[in-house]
Design a protein around this nucleic acid. Structure first.
Lengths: 199, 199
DNA sequence: GTCTATATCTAGATAGAC
DNA sequence: GTCTATCTAGATATAGAC
C-alpha cells in the first residue's frame, strides 16, 4: 500500500504524485524529467499538464499531501493523557516507523533541499509537525520531567539524535532497521533533557 | 578572507571554486548555470573549461578541497592529551565556529544532497572527519567517561543535537549566533552518553 | 480528459581566434 | 591560457487531434 492515498485526489494525480515521490527521492528533483514521470507513472505528458500547472507544482502538491498525511498520523499518535516521556517515546517510534516503512517519505520530507525547487515554501522545521514535537518538550518542562532550559536547545538535543539516526539509516549506515534502535536511542536522548530525579 | 585558499591551486581555479561554493549554496547546484559562474567569478567560459573537465568536476573538486581543509582544521583542534569530554567540547566548538564564520562551508558539506550531482561520491558520514568524531566517543568509552553502548547510537545522540542546532542556525531559526549555544548544547548532549559518576 | 507531436528555450560544452 | 561565438541535446511546456 502506497503512502499517498487521499481519496480526494483523482487516479491520475495519485499516480503522478506517487511516481514523483519515488523519482524525486531516487534521482532528485532536477534529475527527474517529465518524460521520466511519464514512463514511471504511465500517465501521458498531456494528462500530467492537465492535472498540474508545471513541474514545480507537482513537487508543491506532493509536499502538501505528505505534510497533510504526516500531520494526521502525528495527531493519531499523540495521546493527550500520557505524560511527556510517553508522548516523546511515541513520537520517536512513529518517526522511526515511518523511516522504516516509508523511507521515501522520510527522505523527501526531512532531507530534500526544498528551497532549491520550491523557493517560497517555508522550511520544514517551521511546519506544524515540527512545532508539535517541540510542544511535547515544553509540556515536559511544565510537568517537571524535563529540566528548565532553552526550548530550542531541548528540541535539538532530544530529537537531534533520533533524526540523526534516521539520516544514518537512510544513508544505509546502520546494520539494523531503524526501529531496532528505538529503546536505546530514546532513552539515551531523553537523558540529555530529563530532570534529575535523584534529588 | 575566504575559506578556500589552497596555494596549490591556480588563481582562476580558486576564483571559480569560491564562486561555486557561494552559488551552489545560495541557489543550488542545478540552479547554477555556467554563465552564472562566469558572471560571479569573472572567469570566462573558456577558462573554466580549461581548468575543469565539466560542471560536475567543479563540484567534485570543491568538495575535495573543502574536505581536505576541514580535515586539516579538525586535526589542529584535536589535542591528543586531553580527555574525551574536552575533545568532544573542542570539536563541537569548532563545528559551531565553522557554522558561524563560514556558513556556506557548513551548508555545502552538511546539507547539500551530494548524491544528486556527484553520484559516485561516498556519503559525507563515511568521510574521515565524521569517522574521527566517532573515534573520540570510543576513546571516551575506554576511559570510562562514556557508558558502554552502541557506538552509532552514541554518535547519533552526542553529535545529533549539535548538528541539529547547526541546521536550525543555517535555517535562520535561532535568535543568537550558533556559538552562543556552545556550552548549553554540549553539556546537554554529553549528558545523554556520559557515564553515571554518582555510583 | 487523454494522447502524440512538436515548438521553444536554455543549459552544458566546444571551436578556434588571439 | 584566455576569450567570444556557437553548436547541440534535451528539457519544459503547448497545440491540437481524438
Amino acid at each position: 500500500m502506497s503512502y499517498l492515498n487521499n481519496p480526494q485526489l483523482s487516479e491520475v494525480k495519485l499516480k503522478v504524485l506517487n511516481s514523483a515521490l519515488h523519482l524525486f527521492v531516487e534521482k532528485g528533483y532536477f534529475n527527474t524529467s517529465i518524460p521520466d514521470l511519464v514512463k514511471h507513472s504511465g500517465v501521458s505528458t498531456g494528462s500530467i499538464y492537465h492535472g498540474f500547472k508545471d513541474k514545480q507544482s507537482i513537487a508543491e502538491e506532493l509536499m502538501a499531501q505528505l505534510l497533510w498525511q504526516i500531520e494526521g498520523e502525528q495527531n493519531a499518535v499523540l495521546a493527550p493523557e500520557k505524560d511527556a516521556w510517553q508522548q516523546y517515546y511515541d513520537l520517536c517510534r512513529w518517526l522511526l516507523e515511518t523511516a522504516q516503512n516509508h523511507p521515501h517519505v522520510s527522505q523527501f520530507a526531512l532531507r530534500a533541499q526544498h528551497k532549491e525547487f520550491m523557493p517560497e515554501l517555508a522550511p520544514i522545521c517551521s511546519s506544524k509537525p515540527f512545532i508539535r514535537l517541540r510542544e511535547v518538550l515544553e509540556r515536559g518542562m511544565q510537568q517537571g520531567l524535563i529540566r528548565e532550559m532553552n526550548p530550542m536547545i531541548a528540541a535539538a538535543s532530544a530529537y537531534g539524535g533520533v533524526l540523526r539516526l534516521i539520516q544514518l539509516s537512510l544513508d544505509q549506515m546502520l546494520s539494523q532497521p531503524p526501529l531496532e534502535y528505538l529503546d536505546e536511542i530514546t532513552e539515551t536522548c531523553w537523558r540529555s533533557v530529563a530532570a534529575d530525579t535523584e534529588k
